[in-house]
Amino acid sequence: MKNWDDLAERVLQGYELTDVEALNILDCPDEELLSLLQSAYKIRNHYYGNKVKLNMIINTKSGLCPENCGYCSQSSVSNAPIDKYRMMDKASIIKGAAQAHDLNVGTYCIVASGRGPFNKEIDEVASAVKDIKAQYQMKVCACLGLLKPEQAAKLKEAGVDRYNHNINTSANHHENITTSHTYQDRVKTVELIKQAGISPCSGVIIGMKETKDDVIAMARSLKVLDADSIPVNFLHAIDGTPLEGTNELNPRYCLKVLCFMRFINPTKEIRISGGREVNLRSLQPLGLFPANSIFVGDYLTTAGQEETADHQMLTDLGFEIDYCPA
């Protein structure tokens, strides 16, 4: 049996895992899983205590995307029967923020499909963000695709706190998932938002036929990028997408991935994101021992768990909602 607790103590002292140690976590025997979770919690508790950050998504523009991402129901190569609509108006975006505020959500995530936003879409989002900040004082995250420097500057001026642009997978596996943009395009966008003074959010999707070496590479890339928030998505394979029928994950492996992310990026917000309900299933509560953040409500084109069930889960665990007004 590995001494996971000793490894956690070393991480708290600044130690960086070797690739062998990283692989050991992903290959952790199931009978050692509770011990691994306890050790990951030691790191999480050191930096975040028993607090959990809540995030909520509004899908302000759905479908109609020219990109060919294999996991996405909104992409040009998807035949999934989803709602398709252009950018919501300002009033609708603000209405979503009001709902998020009522649910004690700390970060409201404004998401739009597409390769990148048109300037008029940036203007609509920026105008809405100014009003949201004035009315609700909540943190706002935008996720609008590849940005230009002047667009990033406008979002910063409007009050956007954080910008999400996931690397999704490893550099080596990227072309197996999409060819309409490069891995480096994604990295450049994260660097651009950092230069604009916006907090970077970047994460991954697990379960897209990647290797464990790919998972290790993802975590190390996010460490180099210095992403403040790391959403860990677990593939929810949607019928009509190229990854339809992919089912590589089980709840125990998902928990090991979350622990691994905590060991590699100990100080960062680790968020259990899309696919939580269908992949962690009855083990969802255990995910909050390594992770300190979750989405509540629905995702982009798939349904999430009832918000009341999420709040009850946190209460049952003895965790506290970390509501951090901006």
Rank of each mutant, 00 (worst) to 15 (best):
G96N: 08
R252A: 09
T241G: 11
Q151P: 05
N50I: 05
G275M: 04
I177Y: 05
G297L: 11
D213G: 13
A97T: 11
N166A: 05
V296L: 10
I167A: 08
V232I: 15
E277C: 05
N119S: 12
Q13W: 00
G207M: 03
G203Q: 05
K84Q: 14
A100C: 01
K256W: 10
R162F: 01
H101Q: 09
S127E: 15
A158M: 08
A291S: 08
D5L: 11
S170A: 13
R86V: 13
T308C: 01
K2V: 03
S75Q: 06
T241D: 12
S78K: 09
D123W: 00
G159N: 04
G207Y: 05
E16Q: 10
N45W: 01
V125T: 03
A309I: 06
A22I: 00
T178Q: 09
S92Q: 14
S293D: 10
T182E: 09
L314H: 02
C28V: 13
K194F: 07
P266I: 07
N104M: 11
R252M: 09
A97C: 10
V77F: 04
T308G: 00
E210R: 11
P149F: 07
G145M: 04
Y253R: 02
S199T: 14
C143P: 04
I270V: 13
R44L: 01
E191V: 02
K120F: 14
F234W: 05
E21C: 13
E67Y: 07
A309E: 14
A196R: 03
N250C: 12
L64C: 01
Q184L: 10
G287V: 01
N119G: 06
G96T: 10
A152S: 13
K51S: 03
Y47T: 08
E175S: 15
T169N: 08
N265I: 06
E320L: 08
V160I: 15
G304L: 10
I93L: 06
G145S: 04
S73P: 10
E157N: 13
F289H: 00
A134T: 02
T302G: 05
D213C: 06
R10A: 15
G14D: 13
N68K: 05
E277Y: 06
L314Y: 02
E157T: 14
A219F: 10
S180F: 04
G106S: 15
S62W: 08
V11Q: 00
T107D: 01
S199H: 03
Q184P: 03
R86I: 12
F260C: 02
T302E: 03
K209Q: 12
Q38G: 00
G70M: 11
Q13F: 03
L64T: 01
R262F: 12
Y136A: 09
V125N: 01
R115Y: 12
A217N: 14
E306T: 00
S75T: 06
L243E: 09
Y323M: 11
N168H: 06
M261C: 12
N172A: 15
A142Y: 06
V52P: 00
T179S: 11
G145T: 05
V296M: 07
C259T: 01
N104K: 12
M208Q: 10
S73G: 15
D89C: 12
Q312A: 12
R281L: 10
I57L: 15
W4Y: 15
